[in-house]
């Protein structure tokens, strides 16, 4: 396993490097487009290797009329509340399923699992009707609020984590006079903290680039999150102008960078939270 022949080694590195270049190429092109001048953008004479370095583009998108600052702010609000809701509620519900005994619990748990099988399409139209009747159209509420009902998937995974915590800890705390919420807050949360971070990361990733929900619910440019705003920028044809592709790609990059950061800083949490519950391969 530790020794590799010359040819073997050569093939491996060649494969990995060529593949890396292929996968990186579109990303490089994106950066190159983002750094292009308006003239290049209007004439569509982009180059693969950046030739121009218009870093001012990154400032301009915040100062121009299509206000990226506004989009960014909307995105942050959306993601912030989605994460809070999802982490808090999912873990509480998971705790209840993992630890508390109640009549009907099994049935409810089966219901919970069964929602994983329901395709989102089925509830799309009625949810839209419901939210619009509530007057939530053109607000972020239809996208944020469902997170405060917890996600079946997150609940399921967190429950797995909690069941692995020795029950003796709970019992000891109970003797110390903690109620169930106290046990959750003082005992469970610290112990599943990495898993909570992972849930937060998943929720962030899921909502940061969200497009479909905002597309349906948000009308006003002022209220759009970044992903929709960037798309709008590419779709709006001012008279006689090609969409400012360089600025569109700036938007695409701004949309991507937080995702990369989250990957770098969150990787260890996500690895730990490896999706089958941490025990892959050998049972």
């Amino acid at each position: 396993m530790n020794r590799m022949g010359m040819i073997d080694r050569g093939v491996t590195y060649l494969f990995l490097t060529v593949l890396g270049l292929l996968l990186a190429a579109p990303f490089v092109y994106m950066i190159s487009m983002a750094l292009s001048s308006d003239a290049t953008s209007a004439q569509l004479t982009f180059t693969f290797i950046p030739r121009e370095f218009e870093f001012g583009n990154f400032v301009r998108v915040f100062t121009s009329r299509l206000n990226f600052g506004r989009f960014l702010w909307n995105s942050l609000i959306l993601v912030f509340f989605a994460v809070i809701g999802q982490v808090f509620v999912s873990s509480l519900v998971a705790y209840a399923f993992a630890r508390l005994r109640a009549p009907g619990k099994e049935v409810i748990f089966i219901l919970l699992l069964s929602t994983l099988m329901i395709p989102a399409e089925v509830t799309l139209i009625p949810q839209f009707v419901l939210f619009s009747k509530l007057g939530w159209v053109n607000t972020l509420l239809p996208i944020i609020v469902p997170n405060f009902f917890g996600g079946a998937y997150n609940i399921f995974l967190l429950r797995q984590f909690i069941t692995r915590i020795p029950v003796e800890l709970d019992e000891a705390a109970q003797i110390d006079g903690l109620n169930y919420f106290g046990i959750y807050a003082r005992i469970i949360v610290p112990l599943i903290f990495p898993a909570l971070v992972a849930v937060a990361i998943f929720t962030f990733v899921w909502n940061w680039g969200a497009f479909f929900g905002p597309l349906i619910y948000i009308n006003d440019v002022e209220k759009m999150p970044l992903a929709l705003g960037v798309q709008i920028l590419s779709a709006t044809n001012s008279a006689g102008q090609i969409p400012p592709w360089n600025l569109v790609m700036v938007g695409a990059l701004i949309l991507t960078v937080p995702m990369i950061l989250v990957y770098f800083f969150g990787q260890r949490f996500m690895d730990q939270f490896s999706l089958t519950g941490g025990s892959v391969g050998v049972k």
Binding site: F131, V137, N138, I216, N219, V221, E222, A235
Partner: peptide, 20 residues
């Protein structure tokens, strides 16, 4: 002023449906 740069009629219809 509500500026809706794309999918205009769809957006307006949703506003109507939403009672706003």
């Amino acid at each position: 002023l509500i500026y809706i740069p794309s999918d205009y009629s769809q957006k307006v219809q949703t506003m109507i449906a939403g009672g706003t």
